[in-house]
């Protein structure tokens, strides 16, 4: 009898505890704002954010208020407008917004999530998403190092934000690890040439002209120009020029079959984490998009990639996850130029 009473008491206590806990949790936000610098259909950085948030919205049942193509200037009026429209959380998806977003959060008290701005993280008010795409780019570098025939590989970037820089450095490290004799070319299209497709094509063609047969392109809209250059130009040996893309999946438009792979981002992973912090009351953290939480992964390589190379890439992934191999984290353009200059002397 005593046993039964004890069991009953434990059950009652457990139910009380669970009920109390559930009552202590906050509800998920009803409306979440998303600010994008470019169109949310760019098959790149912006589209992945939109798609990721839509996935999270479905899971947690909130409404998205989208503000896109905002450019890289002062978006305070847009943020204030989103606050007026009752957004309980605003995700500002560009490193260029890292100054104004915290200002508006402090001014209005509305929760904001920034990108690449962990110094402003504030408990209950500002959280931040940092990207650790290095491991993904490192694997792409291994792929490039194994697929190049000319031993000349190129990187073309549409700008030099921290995420691009991290990927460029890690790509170079991966390339160097399997092909120490490879030459690496590095071109920047412009200050913020994310949509400069003609510039992407021009820079890629120049790299192909001097012998590059694998191009690692980071460009948003500009990467369409890079893909086109790889599609229409032949390498010096008359063979294909391979293209490694980032963030988006361009297989549907790759008629020339030159897309070697792509480093894909699944932002829903960090968005889920952020919503969970809103619910459990711990909002205001630095979150990471990385290979380890599967927010970043490599698209299945082109069928031209041999099983041997795929196994090598898989082995490298295991080493990265186990910590046996560390990918360097270079954030600024100046540090990146220095590293590339030292690792691949001209």
């Amino acid at each position: 009898m005593k046993k039964k009473i004890y069991s009953l008491m434990i059950c009652v206590l457990a139910v009380c505890f669970l009920t109390f806990n559930a009552m202590a949790q906050n509800p998920a936000p009803k409306i979440v704002g998303l600010c994008l610098p470019e169109a949310g259909t760019d098959k790149g950085w912006n589209e992945q954010a939109k798609v990721g948030l839509e996935k999270t919205a479905k899971k947690y049942g909130f409404k998205i208020m989208l503000a896109e193509a905002l450019g890289y200037g002062d978006i305070k009026p847009t943020l204030r407008d989103l606050v007026k429209k009752k957004c309980e959380l605003i995700i500002t998806h560009a490193s260029g917004y890292q100054t104004v977003s915290p200002e508006v959060a402090r001014e209005t008290g509305v929760k904001v999530t920034t990108v690449e701005n962990h110094k402003d993280v504030t408990q209950g008010l500002i959280s931040d998403i940092d990207t650790a795409p290095g491991p993904g780019a490192y694997l792409a570098g291994i792929l490039a190092g194994r697929m190049t025939r000319s031993n000349i590989v190129g990187i073309v970037v549409s700008a030099e934000p921290p995420t691009w820089n991290r990927m460029s450095a890690a790509f170079a490290q991966g390339l160097k690890s399997v092909n120490p004799n490879a030459k690496l070319l590095y071109s920047v299209i412009g200050e913020d040439a994310y949509a400069d497709a003609a510039g992407g094509k021009r820079n890629t063609e120049d790299q192909i002209a001097v012998g590059a047969d694998v191009i690692f392109g980071q460009g948003d809209g500009a990467s369409f120009g890079m893909l086109q250059a790889c599609s229409i130009k032949k390498a010096r040996d008359g063979g294909k020029v391979w293209f490694i893309d980032v963030i988006g999946d361009k297989r549907s438009i790759d008629r020339a079959d030159v897309l070697l792979s792509s480093i894909l981002f699944d932002f829903s992973v960090v968005y889920d984490e952020i919503i969970e912090t809103v619910i459990d009351g711990t909002f205001g953290k630095q979150h990471w998009s990385s290979v380890s939480n599967k927010a970043i992964y490599l698209l299945n390589p082109n069928k031209a990639v041999s099983e041997k190379i795929k196994k090598e890439v898989d082995a490298a992934r295991s080493k990265l996850l186990s910590g046996e191999v560390k990918v360097m984290d270079i954030v600024t353009a100046a540090d990146l130029h220095k590293y590339l200059g030292e690792s691949f002397p001209k």
Binding site: A69, A195, A197, A198, G199, K201, G221, F224, Q228
Partner: peptide
Amino acid sequence: FLAIGDLAFFIPDMVK
């Protein structure tokens, strides 16, 4: 010329 002479597509803001 930019969209279908040099390139083969249209993307917003491509005129830059």
